[in-house]
């Protein structure tokens, strides 16, 4: 690893922590902006992105805890699944965000008391997710309409393991499905036959990590492919010959971390790239320098910096994309 002095680089921009905190706090006050309404289908995901960023920035209290829990629970259906916002259909993606938020806020007790459905609490959510597994192939659908993607498989593993309910699904079959998604370059795609893609690599490797099967990853081959995602300028791209983008600071880097190859890219240059994507005045991080910021890239810029051990940030868990401390606290409940 190249020696770094991220903490004192006078010529470089610093992480604009307080601006980012204010930016995230402002997100729910923008009801007079058209975009606020057009992105309602991402409300619960957005809350997870913002809250995780705040926890990593060391300001977990910047969003009010009780109101956050109330909102999350108001998105739940009788089936156990969560929609993106009240009135939106249940979907795996919002359900996983709900579980992650409740886990970060240490609110599983609230869930047990107030969760919907005949089983209630964690059990009802586990039931909803387990029913989305395709018992023939092992993969998961996003909702009742049946679209399948390794993103949903990872989401299921992430949420079920946080709920301590991974045994509700056929883990071995799901693992076999992931292996079938592997390509000669060491990467993974959306489904068997699909091209390797950094986002999908993250979901597959992280799902294997949760299943305790990282031994199935061809770490050297995958590591070289991932390290080749770093382009001049320091940013990472998602596939060969594509442009760099801050969100891949998470997908690529967390995958490298999971296979012990983070030192195969240039840490300082990536830190520099992410910092250049900040709006240091109004807060937020964008995909590339000079572009519009959003909460998605804000989170993945910060998680990237956290993995790179940028000073002042809480350590992020490379598998769950949540603060390490929260993951450890939740998972320790189930360890006997």
């Amino acid at each position: 690893m190249s020696s770094s002095n991220a903490g004192n680089r006078p010529e470089e921009v610093q992480l604009a922590t307080s601006a980012h905190v204010k930016y995230i706090q402002s997100l729910d006050t923008r009801k007079d902006e058209y975009d606020y309404w057009l992105t309602e289908h991402l409300r619960l995901n957005g809350l997870y992105w913002g809250l995780t960023a705040l926890h990593l920035l060391g300001h977990p209290e910047a969003l009010p805890r009780a109101e956050t829990i109330d909102f999350v629970l108001s998105c739940q259906h009788e089936s156990g699944g969560f929609g993106a916002a009240p009135g939106h259909d249940a979907h795996m993606l919002s359900t996983v965000s709900a579980v992650q938020i409740l886990a970060m806020l240490d609110a599983f007790d609230e869930l047990e008391k107030r969760g919907r459905g005949s089983l209630g609490g964690r059990a009802q959510i586990g039931h909803y997710i387990a029913n989305l597994q395709n018992r023939q192939t092992g993969t998961f659908a996003g909702d009742e309409w049946g679209e399948e993607d390794t993103r949903f498989l990872y989401g299921a593993f992430n949420a079920l393991s946080l709920l301590g309910l991974l045994d509700l699904v056929d883990v071995d079959k799901a693992v076999k499905h992931i292996v079938a998604c592997a390509n000669f370059d060491g990467g993974y795609g959306v489904s068997p036959g699909a091209e390797s893609h950094s986002g999908q690599i993250f979901t597959c490797v992280a799902a294997l990590a949760i299943a305790g099967r990282k031994d199935l990853v061809d770490a050297d081959r995958l590591g070289r492919w991932l390290s080749e995602r770093q382009v001049p300028g320091g940013g990472l791209n998602g596939r060969p010959e594509k442009k760099e983008d801050v969100c891949y600071s998470w997908w690529v880097l967390s995958s490298l971390e999971m296979i012990g190859r983070t030192h195969w890219i240039d840490r300082d240059q990536l830190i520099g790239f992410i910092l250049r994507c900040q709006d240091t005045e109004k807060g937020g991080i964008s995909d590339r320098p000079g572009d519009m910021v959003d909460v998605w890239h804000t989170l993945f810029g910060i998680t990237g910096l956290s993995l790179l051990e940028y000073p002042g940030l809480q350590p992020v868990d490379e598998v769950y994309c949540m603060p390490k401390s929260a993951v450890e606290r939740v998972l320790s409940r189930y360890k006997k």
Partner: peptide
């Protein structure tokens, strides 16, 4: 509605 997934009835009052 698909053979591969079987979710239970999803009759939340808010949806």
């Amino acid at each position: 509605l698909t053979a591969t997934t079987t979710t239970s009835s999803d009759a939340s009052s808010s949806s």
